[in-house]
C-alpha cells in the first residue's frame, strides 16, 4: 500500500483534510507531528509521499513558512541532519507536495524549484498579496501536465486562502522555470489564459504562477487548496450545478476535482 505522511504541528491546520485526500485516493495516510520525526519515532523512509499541508505554521510570524523551514533545516535526527533524510527520500524517487503554507515552506526551504538540482537553496519566494489582504476566493487555474501530480488535468477551479501568495523570483529564475517547464499551474481568466488581472490572479504572482514543480516532477507546490475540493459540494456553484442536473435529469457527480491531484500521486506507485 502507498503510504503518505501528512505533517502536523506548530499551526499547520489543513492536515485532516489532506490526510482524507490521500485516503480517498487510495493511500494509507498518517498525520505525523514534526517533532515525532525529529525524535526519530517516525521515519520518513517508511513513506512514499510527504505532504506539507496548509495552515499558519508559527502564525506566519517572520514570514510565511520561514520558521518551519528554519526548523527543518536545522533539525537533527539521531545526530544527522534532517536535510539528509529528506534528500535521500527525494533521491529514492518519492514524492513531496506543499500546499499553501506548505508550499511557502518548501520554497523557503529550497525544495522548490531547486533548479540545477540545488536542493535546500532558496531560489524564489512568496510575499504579501498585492491587495495587502488575506482573501478566501475560488480561482481558475490553467494546468500543465509537466509533473506527476498534474497529469490528465488541463484546468481546475480551487480556492485560495492566503495573505502571502505572490510568487516572486529573479528574472533569471523565472526564465528557467519556463525553459525547464517547471510552472505547473497559472491563475487563469475566462478563456483559460494566464492572467495578471485581480481578482482572477488573486495576489499579483509573477507570470500568474500558482504552482511549480522541481526538475524531477515529483516535488510539487501550489498556493490553491486541492484538498478543499474533494467533494462536489465544496464548489461554490454546486447548488446551481445540482439544480441544472436535476432539470436535465443528469446524474450528479460526487467527487471534487481536487482529488485527481492526489490520485495522480498515489497511482504513480502502482
Amino acid at each position: 500500500m502507498v503510504k503518505a505522511l501528512v505533517l502536523t504541528g506548530y499551526g499547520i491546520n489543513c492536515d485532516y483534510e489532506t490526510k482524507l485526500a490521500f485516503e480517498l485516493a487510495g493511500a494509507e495516510a498518517k498525520r505525523v507531528h514534526i517533532n515525532d520525526i525529529i525524535a526519530g519515532e517516525e521515519k520518513i523512509s517508511d513513506y512514499n509521499i510527504i505532504a506539507f499541508p496548509g495552515g499558519f505554521s508559527y502564525g506566519d510570524d517572520l514570514g510565511s513558512g520561514r520558521v518551519l523551514a528554519n526548523k527543518i533545516k536545522n533539525a537533527r535526527v539521531n545526530g544527522e541532519g534532517l536535510e539528509k533524510h529528506i534528500r535521500k527520500f527525494i533521491d529514492d524517487g518519492n514524492l513531496i507536495i506543499g500546499i499553501c503554507n506548505g508550499f511557502q515552506a518548501l520554497v523557503k526551504l529550497g525544495l522548490l524549484p531547486a533548479i540545477g538540482n540545488k536542493y535546500f537553496e532558496q531560489q524564489a519566494s512568496l510575499i504579501f498579496n498585492d491587495s495587502g489582504k488575506f482573501e478566501d476566493r475560488w480561482v481558475d487555474l490553467k494546468v500543465y501536465e509537466n509533473c506527476i501530480w498534474t497529469k490528465e488535468i488541463e484546468y481546475i477551479s480551487l480556492p485560495v486562502r492566503h495573505g502571502e501568495g505572490k510568487f516572486v523570483a529573479s528574472e533569471d529564475i523565472i526564465k528557467k522555470l519556463f525553459d525547464k517547464n517547471l510552472v505547473a499551474c497559472q491563475y487563469a481568466g475566462l478563456l483559460n489564459e494566464p492572467t495578471m488581472e485581480y481578482p482572477n490572479n488573486p495576489n499579483g504572482s509573477y507570470e500568474a504562477i500558482a504552482a511549480i514543480c522541481d526538475e524531477t516532477g515529483r516535488i510539487f507546490g501550489l498556493m490553491p487548496h486541492p484538498e478543499a475540493f474533494l467533494f462536489r459540494e465544496n464548489h461554490p456553484q454546486w447548488a446551481f450545478d445540482k439544480d441544472s442536473r436535476n432539470r436535465e435529469g443528469e446524474k450528479r457527480t460526487e467527487e471534487g476535482d481536487g482529488l485527481q491531484i492526489f490520485r495522480n500521486a498515489v497511482d504513480c506507485f502502482k
Binding site: G54, D136, F229, F231, N234, A239
Partner: peptide
Amino acid sequence: VRQYDHEVQGNTIIKPLT
C-alpha cells in the same frame, strides 16, 4: 467576509457568499 477563511477543514457546503 472575504478576509475570513470560511472553508478550511474542507467541510463548508454553503459559504457566506454565494
